[in-house]
Design a protein around this nucleic acid. Structure first.
Lengths: 161, 161
DNA sequence: ACTAATTCGGATAATAATGTCCGAGTTAGT
DNA sequence: ACTAACTCGGACATTATTATCCGAATTAGT
């Protein structure tokens, strides 16, 4: 890759990311699965990836992860698919989903990448950033699958486009 | 890569990211350059990458970007290096640095990756997330190089480890 | 029993991000 | 003029992330 292309590329393609793609798809997928489960329907991979507009095979891996982590159930064979238990719909929070897919290291991350950034050893952005991180983490911990899926079911929100 | 490794990997290596590495290094680098400039010193690439603990050649690319974007000045030759003009130290905000390195698409990003997520077409996390995004963007726009560099210069904050 | 609709698991491919190397050009000091 | 200390620019290498393929196993319906 030439220098110009590299510079242009470093300059225009990157974004500030919150979640990885895997996690974005995972959240969208589970919201769809939950919506369907609330209506007594099981969701196939095919339906899911069509309804959330995500790559099928990649989404499969993510659903497997969610199943392995006990968040959703997978049922093999014809008429199989993914579903989630009633009781989990209220219990599971955004944080659980993110944690299952993207790992657990949200808490300790420093916004400019220091390994030991903390209250007593802060980076120059620490005090300005800490309340934002706190708000973000508390959103993850307080947003339930139920409320997300309800808003979808009521047609108030959307999962693709 | 085997399935197990893949799953383990998708599960444990990824993080929630705010900035790319390029941007993290860039911010740390320019804070160091500014601190030195405030003390009348020019910084060489070697010094910078040592003081912020970043890979030298990669940091060079990022500094080039910042120079190309008119944020810092580069001076070639012996005794050369990077420096920043007095008047820019107050003027330049975190947002300008991030924008120069990571691109400008912060504003429109949806936390779960929808392309057209907005007030009238929200994703299920939109209303919970919007104030966090707002706070984050306003932090970027209001945090000046001056205050970051001052806290470093006063020994209150740190740029490596 | 057979078939079609599924998930599962492993391998592989493609793309993006991060990181390295090195020769060329520039400049201060001697 | 020469040399050493620098940045610049291009090519290349490595690693991480995202995405795809396909055969095997499972199950419902016929």
């Amino acid at each position: 890759m030439s220098e110009l292309v590299f510079l242009n590329y470093i300059c225009s393609i990157n974004y500030i990311m919150i979640f990885t793609k895997a996690c974005e798809y995972g959240i969208r997928a589970i919201i769809y699965v939950t919506k369907q489960s609330m209506n007594g329907k099981r969701s196939s991979l095919k339906d899911i990836s069509r309804e959330i507009d995500s790559p099928e095979a990649f989404t499969a891996k993510i659903l497997q992860m969610l199943a392995k982590n006990g968040i959703i159930n997978s049922v093999k064979g014809a008429m199989g698919g993914f579903e989630i238990e009633e009781k989990k719909i209220k219990k599971i929070k955004l944080a659980d989903i993110v944690h299952a897919i993207d790992g657990k290291s949200i808490d300790k991350m420093c916004v400019i990448g220091l390994k030991k950034c903390s209250e007593i050893h802060p980076c120059p952005v620490h005090y300005k950033y800490k309340h934002i991180k706190k708000d973000f983490l508390s959103m993850l911990e307080n947003t339930s699958l139920l409320e997300m899926s309800t808003s979808i079911n009521d047609g108030l929100t959307c999962l693709k486009l």
